[in-house]
Amino acid sequence: MLKINNLSAKIENKQILNGLNLNVKAGEIHAIMGPNGSGKSTLANILSGKKGYEISGSITYQDKDLFKLEIEERAHNGLFLAFQYPLEIPGVNTSNFLKTSLNAIRKSNGKKELDALEFLKIIKLKAAELKIDEKILNRQLNVGFSGGEKKKNEILQMSLYEPNMVILDETDSGLDIDALKIVANGVNSLRDKKRSFLIITHYQRLLDYIKPDFVHVLMQGKIAKTGCSDLALELEKAGYEKI
């Protein structure tokens, strides 16, 4: 699914990633943990195509050179990033945004675009499944949303677009236990043999609900240690310093 080879990245002359290697196969869940400033969000940004980095190394995604795809083309190819800080877009109705996005993705894949009614049916179903209050659909996109509502909205979108490769960038940060369960539930319900997840997190807490296949520790811009889900528990107890 995703193969990262010797990835290094600089921003404004500051080295952030430094020879990172990672291989995510279809159906796998990888968790990436690491202290502040270790490059976790940079990794998520580079995968989704954010500009402004000086990059070396290579990434193949579904056997394609990821760097040759524009941001939206990556989305069309099923790469989804759940933002750490989802953006507010005033005046744009959430439901309309989700429909526009879904149709852009469908269109690029040669699928019929959904009309308002068809869309509403699907989105209401998804919201109910995820126990997300559908009232957020009628509000302006993320405007005045609480931190939890913003994250739930990301999970709702993830579930709607049915991506192949999901990157969660600290989606669990700042969530109460109920919201955390909604996030975990969203991921678990999408989990299948064809879909992969990269879960970036600070804490072990989320991994109580989502059991990853691998846990990686990112330090100083590269993977310092890889293990199974027990590694997360160790880190929780001992901290990153021991690594």
Partner: peptide, 24 residues
């Protein structure tokens, strides 16, 4: 960037944001 990540190209994204701005 957020709009692009959700599959909208640059022009669609601008159009969406500006239309939101002009909604009233």
């Amino acid at each position: 960037f957020y709009c692009n990540q959700r599959g909208l190209n640059q022009e669609e994204a601008v159009s969406l944001i500006v239309n939101g701005f002009c909604k009233d």
